[in-house]
Design a protein around this nucleic acid. Structure first.
Lengths: 157, 157
DNA sequence: CGATATTAGTTCGATATCGAATTAGATAAC
DNA sequence: GTTATCTAATTCGATATCGAACTAATATCG
């Protein structure tokens, strides 16, 4: 064991290690996205599904800006995503009584059902994954990813 | 410790755990992408940078199809990305002597220099990250991510 | 109160990505 | 060896995402 220096001594030698890690994260993300979207009806993307899930998790009635911030996408992107969901009647946009500039987003029954069905349709993929890769390993990584995310999130001033 | 059952018993109860994991991966990826691209000259995206890096890592002289497969993007997407790199003279496209339908992609000196400069310009971000998050934790996750990626990759028949 | 600055949402133009169709060349089958 | 099939790359049309500019409403501040 090396004597432990200061908590972390930033070292330019480490650069490739970061690249490798983030590269791998990117690949996993791409594969997961492809896996998810293969199960979604065409025209519905992860972005749509994620908004529905978010609204269930944190309660609906959020404003578009809140959603854009939560997903860290441009406001215009959220406008577009919400328009798609509204067109399919998975959400409803109502005026925000607290602020006439604003709106609030509500899930429709169809929206809730749709999400539930989508999740169920993905189950087989996860089951087949579970057969080859112990879920525990994902759980073990989660706290580390969360810690990383929080730091990176705080860093983007 | 629980008695160890069969290696992994796929269990529908685990679904939310997968979602949480892949969701977190997505967020980290998004933050990393934003961090990288903030350092790249405008008009250059991660996709461009990644192709340059790939060509250095596995040797240039690859064909567009090979690159499209390596990154798992549509051929048309790679055509587009390569066009951007060529316009900026970071790569050169030459005919493939082995196959008249095909081309081979070569790095220019400018391309190599560009990549090196880009990496150096990102160093400060990584250093500041390293100060708060031990690189060892990333290294520890890497093999697990790689294993996961391989399984998912094989699964996408 | 009234002027200024900020904020919510949209429209618009640019670019990234994809799938379908196309063209030219290579491979396979008979 | 000729025909049919497959493959490499591009073009085209559709959609996702973004930033800049805009409008309307709210907040701030003198």
């Amino acid at each position: 064991m090396e004597p432990k220096g200061p908590p972390n001594s930033p070292n330019p030698q480490d650069l490739p290690r970061y690249f490798r890690f983030f590269n791998e994260v990117g690949i996993v993300n791409q594969l997961a996205t492809a896996m998810f979207e293969a199960r979604l009806p065409k025209g519905i993307l992860i972005s749509h599904f994620s908004v529905l899930s978010h609204l269930i998790r944190v309660q609906d009635g959020r404003t578009p800006v809140e959603l854009a911030r939560a997903f860290q996408v441009a406001k215009t992107t959220m406008t577009h995503t919400l328009a798609g969901l509204e067109k399919r009647e998975l959400i409803e946009m109502r005026p925000n009584p607290d602020d006439a500039r604003s709106k609030r987003v509500w899930l429709t029954d169809q929206g809730r059902t749709f999400r539930q069905d989508a999740i169920m349709s993905m189950a087989p993929d996860f089951m087949s994954l579970a057969a080859q890769y112990d879920v525990e390993r994902l759980d073990a990584m989660l706290p580390h990813l969360e810690a990383l995310r929080k730091i990176m999130d705080a860093a983007r001033d």
